[in-house]
Write a protein that binds this DNA or RNA. Sequence first.
DNA 1: TTGTATGCGTTATCAC
DNA 2: GTGATAACGCATACAA
Lengths: 328, 328
Amino acid sequence: MTVSDRPPTLADIARDAGVSVSTASRVLAGTGYASPAARGRVTAAADRLGYVPDVAARALARGSGVRLVVLAAGASAAVLDDPYVDRVVGAAARVCAPLGMGVALNWLPSRNPGDLRRLAADRGVGGVVLLNATARVLDAVPTALRGRVVSIGIGSPQVPSVDVDNAGGTEAVVGHLYATGRRRIAMVTGPHWMPCSGRSVTAYRRMMREAGLPARTVSGDFTARRGRVAAREVLTRWPDVDAVVGISDATALGVIDRLRGDGVQVPGDVAVTGFDDIPLAAMTTPALTTATHPVAEIATAAATAALAGGRVGPLTTFPSRLVRRVSA
Amino acid sequence: MTVSDRPPTLADIARDAGVSVSTASRVLAGTGYASPAARGRVTAAADRLGYVPDVAARALARGSGVRLVVLAAGASAAVLDDPYVDRVVGAAARVCAPLGMGVALNWLPSRNPGDLRRLAADRGVGGVVLLNATARVLDAVPTALRGRVVSIGIGSPQVPSVDVDNAGGTEAVVGHLYATGRRRIAMVTGPHWMPCSGRSVTAYRRMMREAGLPARTVSGDFTARRGRVAAREVLTRWPDVDAVVGISDATALGVIDRLRGDGVQVPGDVAVTGFDDIPLAAMTTPALTTATHPVAEIATAAATAALAGGRVGPLTTFPSRLVRRVSA
DNA sequence: TTGTATGCGTTATCAC
DNA sequence: GTGATAACGCATACAA
């Protein structure tokens, strides 16, 4: 076996297999006709020589892209610092690998989604995964990008979306609280303009209404810091509270920290729940009762759909299930 | 301004600017001569038409790659599930974005690093960032990849590396423990075959020796679960222990959890420290005293070096500084 | 079913 | 300084 210094090309394979490049191309690309005999000789030659298709050349010829762009919308580039973004990128990078593609990460200013035009003009973009999109951002998606962009979170008629079932998860959590005897249940929400937060809040309100209980919400922002402040506010406004639903695990952790600091027993006096089931939710004291958020699965689905050309339903939802631990 | 349905190519720009494609290419690629006049007309035409270079075509012509591959070595593909990997990929994706490139994530079986040959034959690979590499893996790096691969962690004569200053961080932590009066200091280590763990352990042993104190180590594996077990072991073997150094924050958190469960006050009876300064280290009770681990900076440096062609010193080290909180 | 020829968008070589 | 022109590696009408 001769090891050349230069990676083998399709021409090398064709020559070695005794066929034309077009035939080799057909069998290796899995498109078009080829006799079993030819097919066999080509594949044999390919893996004997260690052939790896050149993605660049292939993309150039086919007009396809070479990378998936993860676009995190937000007020500032700081949105990229959210660990959640990294998890999405990580999952996307895994679906890209076998395709010879890669993932790029960009910030998209919510106020000025004009950068989308630039993406549309970039032939290297094989797909786009939108994060934290708003209606404004969704409307700014150029026609040229249609079918190649998928949003995680809110969607639109033009942009399919995939997300966790926030409503279902919230129902599971609130239902658990109710089932365990809690009746004065407050919620620390997320920013009102975030859809994922909105769905949870709506589900909470609906359940409370159906149970004939008053809805008590305090606005937060997904952070533990804000959770602490919110806890104090809840205690002040409703001293008789016996449960707090956090919009996220971080929020819940902040709430718990403040509550205990104020001498309130958790879950003795007040039960607290989170949402996301982050790794550390299991390690805190008390361990956090929460609902799952399969970020990797969601991101994988989004990336796959974006690269597949968007032939996907308008909304794909992943279930969230209750994780019962100690805090509630 | 006419908006064509097809993204503009270099030919379009050249025509619009009244020059040849060669000239347009030179000024846009920033290589070669061009008169100020021509340069001006070309750049003007380019951003008037919203020109974006086709990375695939460029890569094909230049022979450069289209993506950066993050390769996480390990016994099983489960290594990819470590949040640390996602952080590296996220940072790498950010450095790739402005270059029109992307990041792919792959698992590299430590036992069988043969997949490296395949990467070497792949023209799409512009660079490789190695994670959790071992000497065996490093030795398997093909010559063809030299200069395009950078390792985060251990390095070799052929493969430059970049990492946090484990020794320095450990010294800072142990020094703090000593300065605050602790004398019976135990350490929960990582797997002995992991270099980053080794450097911390070595630093710990050296400091203990220099202080005339006995080194007391228990092996762990970076996880909280193992930290719990290790805490029990420490307590059993050295009932008089007054401090435990965790190899990681997760480990330390596990240690603390077990200690408190056993009625040991932290930091009253036993001080506990971690390493990494993960986001939640600040939120636990008690808040964790630890040392920083600038993963994003490290990954950014590694990705940049890998894509730049590896002209970088054999070892770049990022400082780790003490973060003093409550647990020690 | 197979092969020939052409195009994909850029860069680089080399005359001018 | 500038402009033709030949690669770069692959896919695909189209002809055979």
